[in-house]
Design a binder for these strands. Structure first.
Length: 112
DNA sequence: GAATCTACGCGTCACGGGAC
DNA sequence: GTCCCGTGACGCGTAGATTC
């Protein structure tokens, strides 16, 4: 049910060129909007500081929104890629098994 | 047709890591 | 140190499928 658990553990980078995804335990919440620091070297009224903080927060949220979308898009692409690789490998495996059976037939001594 | 389940996407928060 | 980015985790809303 929980979507995040669908990706539980790591999607192992078996081919070496794949990113890894990992699960982290949830932690206690802190409000993200906490102001980090005022602009250096300038005197602001508290209202200006608050406005600046709000502006920074909104900018950050907007960027993070876009980053999250892009991240999800990439992850979907990655999963698709893995799935098609699985499909290819399954076909390949099937062919090899068939080939093996053929060779066994050819090489096995006749028993009659 | 209403209730419930399931899958998906989105926005947000928290965190780690790289760049400066 | 601080800033910024990428991403896991969480909660929420919604559409479609299933059950009654």
């Amino acid at each position: 049910m929980n979507r995040t658990q669908e990706l539980s553990g790591q999607l192992s980078a078996a081919t070496g060129d794949m990113p890894t995804y990992q699960i982290r335990a949830p932690t206690a919440a802190l409000p993200q909007g906490v102001v980090m620091a005022a602009s250096p070297g300038s005197l602001h009224s508290s209202q200006q500081l608050a406005e600046e903080a709000t502006r920074k927060r909104e900018l950050r949220l907007m960027k993070n929104r876009e980053a999250a979308k892009e991240c999800r898009r990439r992850k979907k692409e990655y999963v698709k890629c893995l799935e098609s690789r699985v499909a290819v490998l399954e076909v390949q495996n099937k062919k090899l098994i068939e080939e093996l059976e053929t060779l066994k037939d050819i090489c096995s001594p006749k028993t009659d």
